[in-house]
Design a protein around this nucleic acid. Structure first.
Lengths: 245, 245
DNA sequence: CAGTGGTCTAGACCACTTC
DNA sequence: AAGTGGTCTAGACCACTGC
């Protein structure tokens, strides 16, 4: 682990290049979610840099929640299958009490053609095949969330209502184990809207009741958008929680 | 910069102790917002540790947005007076277009007694003096935000409607320059609600229109809550934006 | 006990800013 | 040229995990 000279185009620190190489390995599924990546020493040898440089690269990837460090054990690829990651992207919390167990009921899962809006968000051509899912989530028997999900048909071939109903656990864990797709980050746009007839029926509310509309775009490695969600939350007894730093 | 042995109670890494000491200096206003703190070498000498240890401490404080590093110049105390920090905690964005200049009109600023709810959030005793502010914010002449603010009377002595109207810029910059109070982080709870008569009047909407209710608690150094806000956003043409990592 | 990540040091050199 | 933060290295030792 000493002299190197990679004649790379424009300047960037060594650890940025290491970061990029580790990221490439993640994206190429060389190491799968939940598995350990090679030790710092091994990576230092592989890339012919010092341990400190690998360390800085890993630190930043861990800060981005792509890797998880475990002292004494190793560094692991982040996964939505871990208990504490089950609700990684869920910001809904009950007004009183602490926790909250949501039960999910899938209503529909159909193959259809992307309209212009969904296509542009997923970076597909309008008319490409997509999968459209409807579901309701309940807390203590009361329906609180109505959610629509759109997925590119190519990546999620064969996903249907039976597969969804057979799965117990977060949808993002299913994507990981059945479709080799790990969600890295997401963006949400939130508005207040009125319940229409359909929403009112699903959530047992009157027409015109105020609902939180939450539109999410979720991304895998390489900033690739692979899932669109449009949820409506009944916020009578729960709220969307956000921390500003 | 070599051997040390601070006989401190329970174990914590050296850089954590350095972090705590820098934080204490910030809290004690030894270095003011916008000012440079001593160089890494100076701090290393002061605390009798290596530069690398100070570096790690500063890195973490910078990641928490308490300090700002500027290569070649120095490390500065974060401030809401900087241009790019003006809207640090504002997550409202226009549906189309990029930016958005909000104009603020203050309606009232009165001294009153804290009710139980506000008192508990601000960690005051019920009945202590607080300041209650009302304002409306507009975009392109259209009112889109109605906001109530509660502040502890002790810390913000003398704040009145004239002072607010005389100030041009973000409220958090005023807190910094006039009341030695720098906001470090905040927590928001969001719900969908219906406009009542008052809100409808302020925002030029019909009664029953859906609004985004945003309750914020903002904290200074030491996790001390010092401001409560309750805003209602008209999200017809704008939305609340959130990134999930 | 060996192997992993975590801390700390000391020193060299680079990149950027200011005078 | 001097001073700041930023990168990189090499090596020592600590803390935690699991055999």
């Amino acid at each position: 682990m000493s002299e190197v000279n990679l004649p790379i185009a424009s300047f960037s620190p060594l650890y940025e290049q290491i970061k990029a190489m580790i990221l490439a390995s993640l994206q190429a599924a060389e190491w799968l979610p939940g598995a350990a990546i090679p030790s710092e020493m091994e990576l230092a040898a592989r890339y012919a840099v010092s341990q400190g440089t690998v360390r800085k690269a890993i630190d930043e990837l861990a800060a981005m929640n792509l890797l998880v460090r475990r002292q004494g054990k190793g560094t692991y690829v982040a996964t939505h299958q871990e208990d504490d990651w089950q609700y990684r992207f869920l910001r809904l919390a009950p007004d009183s009490a602490e926790k909250f167990h949501l039960t999910s009921q899938f209503l529909a899962c159909i193959k259809t053609k992307a309209n212009a809006y969904i296509a542009s968000l997923l970076k597909l051509k309008a008319g490409e095949t997509i999968i459209h899912i409807d579901r309701v989530q309940s807390f203590a028997g009361k329906p609180i969330v109505f959610e629509e999900i759109w997925l590119p048909g190519m990546r999620f071939k064969g996903l249907d209502l039976d597969a969804l109903n057979a799965w117990h656990g977060p949808v993002y864990a299913l994507y990981e184990s059945h479709y080799a797709t790990h969600m890295v980050r997401a963006e949400e746009k939130i508005k207040a809207v009125m319940a229409d007839e359909t929403l009112a029926a699903h959530l047992h509310l009157e027409i015109g009741a105020p609902l939180l509309s939450v539109e999410r775009v979720a991304f895998t490695y390489g900033n690739k958008p692979v899932e669109i969600r449009h949820a409506r939350y009944d916020t009578s007894n729960q709220h969307y929680e956000n921390k500003l730093n």
